[in-house]
Amino acid sequence: MSQQTKRVLVTGATGFTGGALAKKLIERGDKVVALVRKSANVKPLEALGAELVYGDITDADAVQRAAQGTQIIYHIAAVYRTAGHPDSYYEEVNIQGVQHVIDAARKHGVGRTVHCSTIGVHGDIEEIPSNEESPFNPGDIYQRTKLAGEQLFAEAMANGLPGAIFRPGAIYGPGDLRLLKMFKQVKRGFFPLFGGGKNLYHLSYIDDLTDGIILCGEHPNAIGERFILCSNEYDTLKALTATIARQLQVKEPTLSLPVAPLMVAAKMCEALCKPFGIDPPLHTRRVEFFVKSRAFDNSKARRLLGYEPKIGTDEGVKRTIAWYEENDLL
Score class of each variant (00 low, 15 high):
residue 169 G to V: 02
residue 229 L to G: 08
residue 223 I to F: 13
residue 84 G to W: 04
residue 5 T to L: 10
residue 210 T to H: 05
residue 254 T to V: 12
residue 329 L to H: 03
residue 308 E to A: 15
residue 104 A to V: 12
residue 289 F to R: 04
residue 2 S to M: 11
residue 152 L to V: 10
residue 275 P to Y: 03
residue 324 Y to W: 05
residue 294 R to H: 10
residue 14 T to L: 11
residue 113 T to D: 07
residue 118 T to V: 11
residue 266 A to H: 08
residue 159 N to D: 14
residue 4 Q to K: 14
residue 276 F to P: 02
residue 3 Q to W: 07
residue 3 Q to T: 05
residue 256 S to P: 00
residue 287 V to D: 01
residue 68 Q to W: 06
residue 51 E to T: 14
residue 218 E to V: 04
residue 298 N to V: 08
residue 224 G to K: 14
residue 294 R to L: 00
residue 141 I to K: 09
residue 292 K to F: 05
residue 148 A to C: 09
residue 214 I to V: 14
residue 288 E to P: 00
residue 245 A to D: 05
residue 89 Y to C: 06
residue 3 Q to K: 13
residue 17 T to K: 09
residue 98 V to E: 04
residue 40 A to C: 08
residue 50 A to T: 04
residue 30 D to C: 08
residue 67 A to T: 08
residue 129 P to M: 04
residue 213 I to M: 15
residue 114 V to L: 09
residue 178 R to C: 12
residue 79 V to L: 14
residue 310 K to S: 13
residue 148 A to V: 07
residue 174 P to F: 03
residue 156 A to R: 03
residue 315 E to S: 09
residue 320 T to V: 04
residue 223 I to W: 09
residue 191 F to E: 02
residue 47 A to L: 11
residue 268 M to K: 15
residue 225 E to L: 08
residue 141 I to M: 10
residue 30 D to F: 04
residue 146 K to C: 05
residue 50 A to Q: 03
residue 216 C to Y: 07
residue 26 I to K: 05
residue 46 E to A: 11
residue 212 G to L: 02
residue 134 S to K: 13
residue 132 E to I: 06
residue 254 T to N: 11
residue 324 Y to K: 05
residue 139 G to W: 01
residue 245 A to H: 03
residue 54 Y to A: 08
residue 161 L to K: 05
